Amino acid sequence: MESEKFNKFVGILNKFAAVVNNQKYIIGIKNTFATLLPVIMAGAFATLFSSVVFSPEIGLAQVESLSFLAQFKPIADVINYFTMNFLTIYVVFVLGHEIGKLNKLKGVFPGVVAVISYLVMNPSFINFVTEDGTSLEIRNVLSRQYTNPEGLFLGMFMAVLSIELYTWLGNQDRLKIKMPDSVPEAVSNSFSSLIPTIFTITLSATFGFIIHFVTGMYASQIIYSLVQKPLEGLIQGLPGILLLMFVAQVFWVVGIHGMQMVKPIREPLLLAAIAANTAAFQAGEAVPNIVTMPYWDIYMTFGGSGATLGLLISIFLVSKRADYRKIAKMSFIPGLFNINEP
């Protein structure tokens, strides 16, 4: 009886896992962050070199014989700025492109539509107060809070929503501008996507206008306050990070890749935490986040999913079974790099 209940439970989890892993938005999000990991790491390394090597206050450049290194600091700073502080824009573009591919759309244009659809949801001005108390409105600029990780969740939402709308409009024959066969394919495709593009961008801007008109707040502020910030706070606490790991292990117990199941929740928050830490450190402020992707890799999955490095060491110490020891020998070196699924 107990075995039947357990098998039923396993069956339910397997069905749920299959639905999640085959869900195109989950696939798109996972592919997006896998694609952008080099960008995030480039920004992190730029911050490292800016502080540890090129800084004349705390880096190697403070040594008199190495003081020439300080002149290279602007290089690292500009790399950091255009990687970490534009992360949301890159995520929106790549996610729009990924959803477009899953919707059988060709080329990278869906990524462009996604970026524009996200940007028109945000204000194009900044209110600035001078030292003497004068309030100024600077127009035709985009505040950093809409390009850095604060805008991440709205950006992902708009990437998905805009490309789904763009795809649906593009499938309506009556909205297509058809050109003669003699017209080059690139030009014909451009005219075919003209009306869907205009409608998608216009509806996105109108949606943002209505939200601001009704609430007095911009959509990015609402999403960040109600969704992203609470999730960031939850995952930065011990109960939240343990709950996420517990959910992953429940799936592992029944033979489902638990890390892949929690990845769409984990990576946007933990990679954004890296970007927020890097930006704060670069600005000379206190680093706000303890739990980041490196924290997860080092303390939560040491040796790979399930923290199996200790298991391998125990096999070397006490196990007499040849098959266990053979697997342990093959697994140990990859395990040092947190790889153990194979």
Rank of each mutant, 00 (worst) to 15 (best):
G155E: 04
L87Y: 12
K176L: 05
K30S: 14
P74L: 11
S117E: 15
S3N: 14
N148I: 07
S135N: 07
K178Q: 06
G237Y: 06
V254H: 02
V94N: 01
I177N: 10
A186I: 08
K30H: 03
I126C: 00
F6I: 15
L95K: 08
K104I: 12
N277E: 15
S67L: 09
I333G: 06
F68P: 00
L270D: 12
Y224M: 12
D132R: 09
G133P: 14
M158V: 07
I333E: 02
Y90T: 07
L175K: 10
S55G: 13
P149G: 12
L66H: 00
Y90S: 02
V253S: 07
N7R: 06
R139G: 11
R266K: 09
E131F: 00
I235K: 00
F213L: 03
N22C: 07
N189L: 06
K101Y: 03
G216F: 00
Q23E: 15
T47F: 11
M217S: 14
L270I: 13
F72S: 03
G107K: 08
F86V: 02
F213W: 04
F16I: 14
F54D: 00
F6D: 04
D77F: 09
N80F: 11
E57F: 04
G43R: 10
Y118P: 11
F33K: 00
E150I: 08
K5H: 06
M261T: 10
M41N: 07
G111I: 00
G59H: 05
L69Y: 00
I58Y: 02
I29F: 06
N80K: 11
A280L: 01
K24G: 14
V120R: 15
V113I: 06
G155Y: 00
N122S: 15
N103G: 03
F337T: 05
I126F: 00
A328P: 11
S190G: 05
K178V: 07
A42V: 09
F207L: 12
L269R: 06
L309N: 07
F72L: 06
L87P: 00
T292S: 15
L336H: 06
F93P: 05
Q282L: 03
F72D: 01
N7W: 02
F246Q: 07
N289P: 03
A322E: 15
P184M: 09
V160A: 14
E164Y: 05
R266D: 00
L311C: 12
G28Y: 07
V91R: 00
I99M: 02
G240W: 08
W296L: 05
D173E: 15
S67N: 12
G111P: 03
A273E: 03
T197Q: 03
P239K: 08
I222M: 07
E341L: 11
V253K: 10
K320T: 11
S124L: 13
V141C: 04
F316Y: 12
D181S: 01
F302N: 10
G208K: 05
P264V: 13
